[in-house]
């Protein structure tokens, strides 16, 4: 089975203060560390597990600037055979434009695949829609938030999709298809620095995005970046550790959950 897995390099923002530049023109991401999108880790693992069992190969594809090579090396260290970079220096904010570019690339390069995996969402942009748009453009079936692949047959998968509140639905999906993979579906293998270094020896191909854009027109655009709407906010407890502890226990007592 040939599986194409999309892997995105994203900034790590959890512990960072993000600054909006100018009059809302952009967000300063320049000093942030980056890594592979967490959801894509699970997608790569799931693809590699499938080919380890049934044979075939995994190709990891990233769309981004040359730095994105980093996630390709990681995917290769996890067991992908190839890493392709679709090099675009500008960030495509419109998910439709990004999916169209990818569609043109897959078609023009005649990429063979039985299945395409993406993550459920990118940690940074959180659109959760790249895979769905791409699947429709390719005219192949799509299933999102896959939390289990229960059966792998010649012409179809049986997968479990995660819904809300602990409910799942089982669906049968014909191949070729596109699945978006949910976190927790597997335990992504550990990748050592040595492993990544070894993966660097495997050649990664670079394709220029400009060869695959047709109109280049975006259907949606960002007019402005803004900070979150401020709600009332929390009353902050300050002081040294001891003082904070006593204040916290006082609140717990007042709420009647601690004696």
């Amino acid at each position: 089975m040939e599986i194409v897995v999309f892997t995105k390099r994203v900034p790590v923002t959890q512990e960072e203060e993000l600054r909006i530049l100018g009059d809302g023109q952009s967000v300063d991401l320049s000093k942030l560390p980056h890594r592979m999108n967490d959801w894509d880790n699970y997608a790569v693992e799931e693809a590699v597990k499938l080919i380890e069992k049934g044979g075939g190969g995994v190709t990891s594809v990233a769309i981004g600037d040359s730095e994105s090579d980093e996630v390709l090396r990681r995917a290769i260290a996890m067991g992908a055979r190839d890493g392709f970079l679709l090099e675009a220096n500008e960030v495509l904010q419109d998910p439709f434009a990004r999916a169209t570019l990818t569609y043109n690339f897959l078609k023009k390069e005649n990429m063979p695949f039985d299945a395409i995996f993406t993550g459920v969402q990118a940690e940074d942009e959180q659109f959760a829609c790249f895979g769905g748009i791409l699947a429709a453009l390719l005219k192949i079936p799509y299933a999102a938030q896959v939390i289990g692949i229960d059966a792998v047959e010649k012409d179809h998968f049986v997968v479990r999709r995660e819904l809300e509140g602990g409910l799942q639905e089982r669906v049968k999906v014909s191949l070729p298809c596109l699945l978006s993979i949910q976190s927790g579906i597997n335990e992504p293998r550990y990748v050592s620095i040595m492993g990544v270094r070894k993966a660097s020896k495997v050649e990664r191909k670079v394709f220029k995005a400009s060869n695959y854009t047709d109109s280049g027109k975006s259907l949606v655009e960002i007019t402005k970046w803004v900070y979150p709407p401020k709600k009332e906010g929390a009353a902050m407890l300050a002081g040294d550790v001891g003082e904070i502890c006593s204040k916290l226990f006082a609140i717990l007592k007042e709420k009647g959950v601690y004696q």
Binding site: L18, Q93, I222, W225
Partner: peptide
């Protein structure tokens, strides 16, 4: 629309 788990929001216009 939220970005980065609600750290900032983008205002989008549809063409």
């Amino acid at each position: 629309k939220s970005y980065y788990s609600d750290k900032v929001f983008a205002q989008f216009k549809s063409a």
